[in-house]
Design a protein around this nucleic acid. Structure first.
Lengths: 167, 167
DNA sequence: TTAAACTTTCAAAAATAAATGAAAGTTTAT
DNA sequence: ATAAACTTTCATTTATTTTTGAAAGTTTAA
């Protein structure tokens, strides 16, 4: 396999993986492209490489920056903006997990707490509902806390987790 | 909040969460409904509660069974089939993580291995590509292995993880 | 065997999500 | 101040995903 083919395969695969995980294809592809670039890339070049429109590139770059995993860069004597991705994988994973926790897990926990707190102990059906949602609340809360603790280590958290866990 | 309202809120929330994680809304809603039912539910009742068509119910129940998190049940003297969800949360999480590993992570690893193995050491660009994809391969492999190890514990793996990690 | 009771399949329709591109907005150099 | 160089926005279009529902398939009881 030659370089160009490998590069393309990587970008496509990362894009497909993105959509399986609730991130849109282009967003994941842009991120993939930036990950493997040794220098900052202009919007023009991104549009060109991925064959996407200016609007699409702009909106997805904004989203990536909102996630904190892509940065703007300015070059002296250049009017254009350039973009780079967070390349440290520990840092990348930490940022993604924090953001998803904030956007998805926390709101879900709020609902779980609400619905598990209803005054409902008449029928078996109601008792079961309260019991299940309470368990779910506890489980998700615990999982969210563990994730938080793990990513607090930042540097090499994965390696540290391996070490801790293999003991 | 009364029971019916809480139940509905739970099903809707779980459905929305599902779509953010690459699982379709109806599939997640059916799962939610079964999770909080204290007894097995017929397809008719699922269609009725969620206001969905027969085909939709059938296909998503099949998908849930393929994931191994919903089971068919037969009642004596009843022609119809009934369905229940895996209600043990440890077990549920283990099954989901195993299935996603098999379906998504393993194939991604295969591609990462391929593209990181290209003979390409001429330009800086190529060297950087190989270096980044290699790092990514190592990272994802390690994460996949940790997940595997953690879920091997099955019963109470989350609690065990908390204990191990807080030490 | 046949017919009733049920489930599955899949082509077509509907709903949802993403992409386009032109106009509006912003920044910088002169 | 102005115009060139660039980015963002958003109504519309396009692509993708999901849902429908009717026909085909299956199972069971008589």
């Amino acid at each position: 396999m030659e370089f160009k083919e490998a590069k393309n395969k990587f970008v496509q695969t990362w894009g497909a993986l993105g959509s399986q995980w609730g991130i849109n294809k282009t967003m994941a592809q842009i991120h993939a492209l930036l990950m493997i670039s040794n220098e900052a890339v202009s919007m023009e070049d991104i549009m060109d490489e991925l064959q996407i429109s200016r609007g699409n590139a702009s909106m997805n770059l904004r989203a990536l920056m909102d996630w904190g995993i892509v940065y703007k860069e300015y070059k002296v004597g250049e009017r254009r903006e350039f973009f780079t991705a967070e390349k440290d994988l520990d840092e990348l994973a930490v940022k993604i997990s924090r953001e998803r926790s904030k956007r998805e897990i926390k709101p879900a926990l709020k609902v779980l707490k609400e619905v598990s707190s209803i005054e409902a102990n008449t029928t078996e059906e109601e008792k079961h509902f309260v019991s299940q949602t309470t368990k779910l609340y506890d489980f998700v809360l615990k999982a969210d806390n563990v994730l938080d603790k793990i990513t607090e280590y930042k540097d090499n958290w994965l390696t540290k987790l391996v070490v801790k866990f293999m003991k």
